[in-house]
């Protein structure tokens, strides 16, 4: 006769299992390869010197996605260049509580995140209030 664990017993086993394992995804899938970064060099990584951008809206991310653990909480914003082009980026080194619509920001080249322990390190522009 096969003895199946009771519902109660199964719950306890599951609980112990969850406690024992760090509750993480089973694979460490890298989001990016060096070739992807190289391909995007002109658009993502070229610093637009003297470009200023106006803050349209913003939010503080308290619960970030994989890879952003070290930086959470962080602030994201929608910003607008003088020609009306808008984009999304992180705003940093600025007092969150004083941010307001229309504040002017300038870009800095900064680290965004590491793609796992042995993946590519991602850099990009973050924006600071002037």
């Amino acid at each position: 006769m096969v003895l199946l664990p009771s519902q109660e017993r199964r719950k306890k086993l599951l609980f112990n299992l969850l406690k024992a394992q760090s509750f993480k995804p089973k694979t460490n899938m890298h989001k990016s390869s060096p070739s992807k970064i190289w391909r995007k060099f002109d658009t993502r990584y070229s610093i637009i010197s003297n470009q200023k951008a106006k803050l349209i809206s913003w939010s503080k991310v308290e619960s970030g996605p994989d890879g952003f653990d070290l930086y959470t909480p962080y602030t994201v914003g929608i910003l607008e260049f003088e020609d009306g082009t808008r984009f999304t980026a992180q705003v940093t080194d600025s007092d969150y509580d004083t941010l307001k619509y229309g504040d002017v920001f300038v870009p800095f080249f900064k680290k965004y995140y590491e793609d796992g322990s042995d993946g590519v390190i991602h850099y990009g522009l973050k924006w600071r209030k002037i």
Binding site: S59, K60, V76
Partner: peptide, 20 residues
């Protein structure tokens, strides 16, 4: 490429809509 890369999550996107 232009949102998720920068750490914009769905709650934060809708939060920016809410603020505006």
């Amino acid at each position: 490429e232009w949102e998720a890369f920068y750490g914009a999550t769905f709650p934060s996107l809708y939060a920016m809509i809410a603020r505006e």
